[in-house]
Design a protein around this nucleic acid. Structure first.
Length: 314
DNA sequence: TGAATTTGACCGAG
DNA sequence: CTCGGTCAAATTCA
């Protein structure tokens, strides 16, 4: 698996690099006076093909890692307390959950949220979540931009019905205000997980989110990375998208696969949202979000600490 | 009216 | 003692 992984990652890099070069070429060719429509079509086809190949390879890597018998599974990383839906509550056993939690799989994902995403532009991760708490986090630079200030805590809707213990945390990325960091803990064991997997297999398209970085804190680090994380030392996707953004500039709206359908896309142009946490957790809000409430750009906002007064929190 | 969210309190880790 | 994570009652929403 190790060699396969390296080989395939190199291939992915190659594909993505090729896509970038082709995009460069296309940019040059976009001068209408000296470019035929056929040339542009051909370049676009090649670019799309490169991206498709890269995404398919990433999907294969995920599948291979999932099927690897040596991989420590969800069940293996969990103890009986966490595996039991009955464990929730105020029983003494439950008090140990935070201790055990540190051994759960954990990885983070950065998501850019955009007001212009339409009904097909859902930013949800395909799962239904229920918010169970929120906290003002020290060092959080942009608390005012949250209706729910700080960090929001979500757990799977099916926690009680199916004992699914997946959780996630949503907070704004410190360095990039338009991005949100979503930290996932634990894998889904509920039916929606199975449905999503089935859909993925049908579509044969990688439906993983924009970019992910593993922030796992497992004792058994190396062999227990989430199957769809990029290795921290070689975060190709991160680098790629950052480079693309720098290269093309803010007017460029990269397209990303929608996790729900694996067919729809959402664009990531300039973000003008003031309540990201809810949108991330609840894709339907994207559809119904009133545009008049989106009349400021977060990129234009100064995050002056003086604006953060007690009334924002209470 | 049931489901989802909000929010203050509580608890364990460091 | 502080802070992050969770609980659970109160509140809001559909």
């Amino acid at each position: 698996m190790e060699k396969n992984g390296i080989l395939e990652r190199k291939t992915v890099i190659s594909e993505l690099t090729q896509g970038r070069e082709l995009a460069n070429e296309l940019k040059k060719q976009l001068n209408p006076t000296k470019t035929s429509a056929e040339t542009c079509d051909s370049l676009v086809e090649k670019i799309l093909s490169s991206y498709d190949n890269a995404l398919a390879l990433l999907n294969c890597i995920s599948l291979l890692e999932n099927e690897n018998p040596s991989q420590i599974t969800w069940e293996n990383t969990h103890n009986s307390i966490e595996g039991s839906p009955i464990s929730e509550g105020s029983t003494p056993d439950c008090k140990n959950n935070s201790k055990k939690r540190k051994k759960m799989q954990k990885w983070s994902e950065q998501i850019r949220v955009c007001s212009e995403t339409g009904p097909e532009g859902q930013i949800g991760d395909g799962y239904s979540w229920r918010k169970y708490g929120q906290k003002i986090i020290l060092g959080a630079i942009h608390p005012r931009l949250f209706k729910c200030h700080g960090r929001a805590y979500y757990r799977c809707t099916h926690r009680h019905t199916q004992g699914c213990l997946a959780t996630k945390q949503v907070q704004r990325a410190d360095d990039v205000p338009s991005m949100f960091e979503v930290i996932y803990r634990g894998n889904h064991s509920c039916m929606q997980e199975k449905r999503l997997k089935q859909n993925n297999e049908k579509s044969q398209i990688c439906i993983e989110p924009v970019l992910k970085t593993e922030t796992q804190e497992l004792d058994t680090k190396e062999e227990n990375l989430p199957s769809f994380s990029f290795p921290s030392t070689e975060n190709v996707a991160t680098q790629f998208f950052l480079e693309q953004e720098n290269f093309i500039g803010t007017s460029y709206s990269p397209l990303f696969l929608c996790p729900e359908t694996s067919e729809s896309y959402f664009s990531l142009s300039q973000c003008q949202v003031n309540d990201f946490a809810e949108i991330i957790s609840n894709p339907t809000l994207i559809m119904n979000f009133p545009s008049k409430e989106l009349d400021f750009s977060i990129d234009q906002v100064d995050f002056d600490p003086r604006f953060i007064d007690a009334s924002d929190y209470f």
